[in-house]
Design a protein around this nucleic acid. Structure first.
Length: 154
DNA sequence: GCCAACGTTGGC
DNA sequence: GCCAACGTTGGC
């Protein structure tokens, strides 16, 4: 099983939204970055777990654990002219953008903040993609040891 | 709201 | 293939 970290802005999509969704499951659509696309399409597997991370908000950090319940498939919002994430360059016969379905596993007992994660950047969390300077990827892998350590902070 | 970092686009 | 312009991300 692999581990991931997936970013969302809580004003756009929050853990409450996920908890309220049918089956506490949602399609993770709208990713428009090739590196992230490759992970969605080629690397994420059913049963993988992912941290739900809040960005662009008062207290950036990890708030929940999710599970991948459906592996990569074409993102239909790319074909919808009226959709905010529409991309004319994505041909339905050769889709450019992919998504997975995620299910809420559980909320964390507390938010593990970016500030707190940073304190361990030089040691326990050395190499964690989220902490790399200038990192903007909305989906990043988390090594098993990093995953374990982050949960130990909870 | 600011701004640094970085991905993408497009002219050449 | 280079690189400037531009748009987006995301912390602060």
């Amino acid at each position: 099983m692999r581990h991931w970290l997936m970013k969302t802005e809580p004003s756009t999509f929050s853990v409450d939204d996920l908890a309220a969704a049918r089956g506490q499951t949602t399609g993770w659509d709208g990713v428009r970055n090739f590196q992230a696309r490759n992970m969605l399409r080629d690397e994420m597997r059913r049963g993988d777990q992912a941290f739900l991370y809040y960005s662009s908000c008062a207290v950036p950090g990890i708030v929940a654990i999710m599970q991948i319940v459906k592996e990569g498939y074409p993102d239909p919002t790319a074909f919808d002219r009226k959709h905010h994430h529409y991309d004319a360059a994505s041909d339905p016969l050769e889709p450019r953008w992919f998504m997975v379905d995620v299910q809420l596993k559980r909320r964390l007992a507390r938010t593990i903040t970016l500030e707190e994660l940073r304190k361990h950047a030089a040691q326990k969390l050395a190499g964690l993609a989220l902490l790399r300077p200038g990192n903007r990827l909305s989906i990043t892998p988390v090594a098993p040891a990093h995953w374990k350590f982050i949960l130990s902070l909870e």
